[in-house]
Design a protein around this nucleic acid. Structure first.
Lengths: 130, 130
DNA sequence: ACTTGACTCTCCCATGATGGTAAGGTTTAT
DNA sequence: ATAAACCTTACCATCATGGGAGAGTCAAGT
């Protein structure tokens, strides 16, 4: 399987597959004589894992750790759970930050009449925020 | 006022002030004979505006638009409101994406006993996600 | 006057994840 | 044989920010 097929099958772009290889997230694949990377079902499986972990917001660094655990038959599920919970906490932090922005901005926007007149509590609010 | 003072007063790093100047977000400041940038109260005011808009999650590009409106005495508040509401919609999208990740991951983590045993629904769930 | 420390200047590099493009080689199908 | 579709590497861009090097400047204390 060439990289394009692996990309289509895993929903990871060829560009990213090469990138993951270069940063050491995945092993270097075998090559044809012409230098084409060759992939197999298990590689696609791995790439799909990566893709889904990305969809869950894990960083490539965290995914690296997940992959070591995935590969390790003697892993403790507690280790995986710890990673996941740390990531949930991180998501919570980010959600809270965005929500706070949203709240503040919504309050400002509600106070703005939004017509042709120039006076606008949004700009005032940004300028004068405590 | 030198850049360091302006940075402290506005809570925008000197590094960023130079950057904002270079990308055209703020005007080039006057310089001393030695080439030191000189700032005044109104510059600090502007930088604080930028800082707060950043805190609300506006991109520098959006901030550029906000600044034009800020500077324009004949602006229509509707234009500002439109920008703000577009940004709120963007925040909503991002919050929803993160929340969905959080939900999925929490479900997986709850199913993981998190002990010394290797079997772990989190890794399974990532690998087998629909 | 001279040193010292704190400041400033520009320039280059790095982040994280991804995409684009260019210039060239390969494979496959017509 | 030729064209289409693919692959390769290498470089550049994004976005906002920080780090560091190497050199110049300024103010305060000796």
């Amino acid at each position: 399987m060439n990289i394009g097929d692996a990309a289509r099958a895993s929903d990871v772009s060829a560009k990213m597959i090469r990138h993951y290889e270069r940063i050491g997230l995945i092993r270097t694949s075998s090559r044809t004589q012409a230098g084409y990377r060759q992939y197999h079902e298990r590689d696609v499986h791995l790439l799909r894992f990566i893709r889904r972990a990305r969809d869950l917001g894990f960083s490539l660094d965290q995914i690296g750790q997940l992959l070591s655990l995935w590969d390790d038959p003697g892993r403790a599920s507690a280790d995986v759970k710890r990673l996941a919970e740390a990531h949930i906490a991180d998501l919570d932090t980010r959600i809270a930050a965005l929500s706070e922005m949203r709240t503040t901005l919504t309050t400002l926007a509600q106070a703005c009449h939004g017509d042709h007149r120039p006076d606008c509590p949004i700009l005032q609010g940004i300028a004068d925020a405590t």
